[in-house]
């Protein structure tokens, strides 16, 4: 039995290394010079360089990084402000509507061109192309439904006795929601907010189509860079690492909620 377990562990470790290897290779590459990257056979040991990161940081990459941060944060805040009360209301209402559920799920799952085309056409006239506001609005299409679907189960399982007690004490409905219900759902709120942020941050398609330069986000900037200096792999890798760093940290922090976030609450992980 113990031998079995040892084999199992070895297998699990081996597999996780295999799965992680491609990712680690990219990280490694971001610390290499171009000559080291192209060397054959590859050097196992090399003196790491920070030059790739330095070059990125002094370039205009920082601006796209800021755009990503601002648009992701703003759409998350908006989606939370609007979506949390709605999720609460849905959790407390007796009747459910199939159509409403379908609408919310479908807007989370629709193919991106479905929104990209009308938004692009409308933004041309509204002057919202290449603006952060334009991106924030389109990120609401998936963030809002995400908030509703993630938060509803939290409110459903929260005991109603507390808020009812608050009403009897003379608190208004709003007060009860803010002072009693929300604090009890704090972990869920945090996880939901982080997932919203991650999804907006990860967006590539909408930013590719709806921004030019001023509002360009970090993922688009990295790809642009890739087309531009196709063989400076060290810098491309460094750009990739910078784009993934915040997301990696955040998502591992809320890993318990990842699955429900990615499946819009269909499965609790």
């Amino acid at each position: 039995m113990r031998a079995n377990k040892a084999i199992l562990y070895a297998l699990a470790i081996g597999l996780s290394l295999l799965v992680l290897a491609p990712f680690l290779w990219l990280v490694r590459m971001s610390f290499q010079t171009n000559a080291q990257i192209f060397a054959f056979p590859p050097h196992l040991w090399f003196r790491p360089t920070g030059a790739n990161y330095a070059a990125l940081w002094e370039g205009e990459f920082t601006r796209s990084f800021m755009n990503s941060a601002v648009t992701s944060t703003a759409s998350t805040v908006l989606a939370m402000l609007l979506g949390v009360p709605a999720a609460y209301a849905l959790a407390r209402m007796r009747r459910r509507s199939d159509a409403l559920s379908l609408w919310i799920v479908a807007s989370r799952l629709a193919p991106p061109t479905a929104f990209a085309i009308p938004y692009f056409l409308a933004y041309r006239h509204l002057g919202l192309l290449d603006t952060r506001i334009g991106l924030i609005i389109i990120y609401l299409t998936f963030d809002l439904s995400l908030v509703v679907w993630l938060m509803r189960p939290f409110f459903e399982t929260a005991p109603r006795a507390l808020e009812e007690a608050a009403w009897i004490d003379g608190a208004g409905f709003w007060q009860a929601l803010v002072r009693v219900v929300l604090p009890s759902a704090a972990p869920g709120l945090a996880a939901t907010a982080i997932l919203c942020f991650v999804f907006s941050w990860n967006d590539f398609f909408f930013a590719l189509i709806l921004t030019r330069t001023r509002a360009m986000t970090a993922p688009v900037a990295v790809v642009n860079f890739m087309n531009y200096v196709g063989w400076q792999w060290g810098r491309i890798a460094a750009g990739g690492v910078m784009v993934m760093l915040p997301v990696l940290v955040f998502s591992l922090a809320v890993r318990r909620f990842l699955v429900s976030g990615l499946t819009a609450g269909a499965v609790k992980g």
Binding site: A55, E60, Y228, R235
Partner: peptide, 9 residues
Amino acid sequence: MQRLSVTRR
């Protein structure tokens, strides 16, 4: 992306 070209320039 302009500044990224510094090296080549």
